[in-house]
């Protein structure tokens, strides 16, 4: 590189930095500062009103021995698992069908899949609350209509079905987003590859497994990551549908954090939960990124 070039790069560096500075400032003010503050707060016992009491790692030890937290985290992992299967994988299959099998209708289908993505989660939650209502709701009415009266129940109010009911809503809600993302990816696969496969007599199943999946693997990886991070942070749907109840039966980490922070006013402990959630989410993201690499990738 020549000297003049270095000067040019330096000049541009400065300009770039000046342009980036405001954004960076916001990141510091609204992301970095709260994270550091939460880390600091997690070493205190504080009810939000009186003077904070320093407890050191006391909150972390309490967290380690808190069965409700671990059960909630377990539910987050189940949400993530169901998201991989019923959101990411299913979305890929749907995207393949839309692009390769019924391209003529792909736009209209895509529109319907996207409706829940565009509606706020609170509205979706309230809508589903009506559907799940044991007396006026659509779900029980539908079961009755097909003669499955024995399956009728108070979906959101019973410990053994509340969490399942929430996961179903999540799958319906977020599926569309992944369908959209995968449709774009599947469209970008060159037609010639499929044509070659067809000449060799490959059917849809074979084409899906052997061409589409490997060709859009980067998208699969990115979407899985998105789904896992989203699942570990999930809050609004659980909050609206069950508020983590009954008796923590559908509690996830975020709703537990909210209860501790704004129900019990244990700000320090809530900060500890939040910090743990952040670390665990980052860890999960790293694991996924590492183990979903294609062979041959650096």
């Amino acid at each position: 590189m020549m000297r003049a070039d270095i000067g040019f790069a330096k000049r541009h560096n400065r300009a770039a930095l000046i342009f980036l500075a405001p954004a960076l400032l916001f990141v510091f003010a609204f992301v970095a500062y709260p994270v550091v503050y939460a880390g600091w707060l997690s070493m205190f016992q504080w009810d939000g009103a009186s003077a904070p009491v320093f407890v050191g790692v006391g909150n972390v030890l309490r967290l380690a021995g808190d069965p409700i937290f671990w059960a909630s985290l377990g539910r987050n992992l189940l949400v993530a698992l169901s998201a991989i299967v019923f959101q990411v994988f299913l979305a890929l299959v749907i995207a393949y069908c839309l692009v390769r099998i019924v391209p003529a209708f792909s736009r209209i289908f895509l529109f319907f899949y996207l409706v829940p993505v565009m509606v706020s989660e609170i509205c979706i939650g309230l809508l589903w609350r009506f559907m799940y209502n044991p007396y006026f709701g659509l779900v029980n009415a539908a079961l009755k209509a097909v003669g499955l009266d024995s399956l009728k129940r108070g979906w959101l109010g019973e410990s053994d079905t509340a969490f399942l009911a929430v996961v179903v809503v999540m799958s319906f809600t977020y599926l569309g987003l992944y369908v959209l993302l995968f449709t774009a990816a599947v469209r970008s696969v060159p037609e010639s590859v499929y044509e070659a496969a067809e000449i060799d007599g490959a059917g849809h199943g074979r084409k899906f497994v052997s061409i589409t999946v490997p060709m859009v693997w980067d998208a699969v990886r990115a979407n899985s990551l998105l789904a896992i991070i989203g699942s570990l942070k999930t809050f609004s749907l659980v909050f609206v549908l069950t508020n983590g109840g009954p008796n923590h039966a559908s509690e996830v980490v975020s709703t537990y954090l909210y209860k501790m922070g704004f129900g019990s006013f244990e700000m320090g402990y809530a900060a500890t939960i939040g910090f743990a959630q952040m670390v665990l989410t980052a860890l999960a993201a790293w694991i996924v990124f590492r183990y979903m690499k294609r062979k041959g990738d650096a």
Binding site: P134, W155, L156, E158, A162
Partner: peptide, 14 residues
């Protein structure tokens, strides 16, 4: 009511 732990006070009122 069935599923009372999942119903809101408004639903109970209905």
């Amino acid at each position: 009511p069935i599923g009372f732990n999942g119903m809101s006070d408004q639903e109970a009122n209905m």
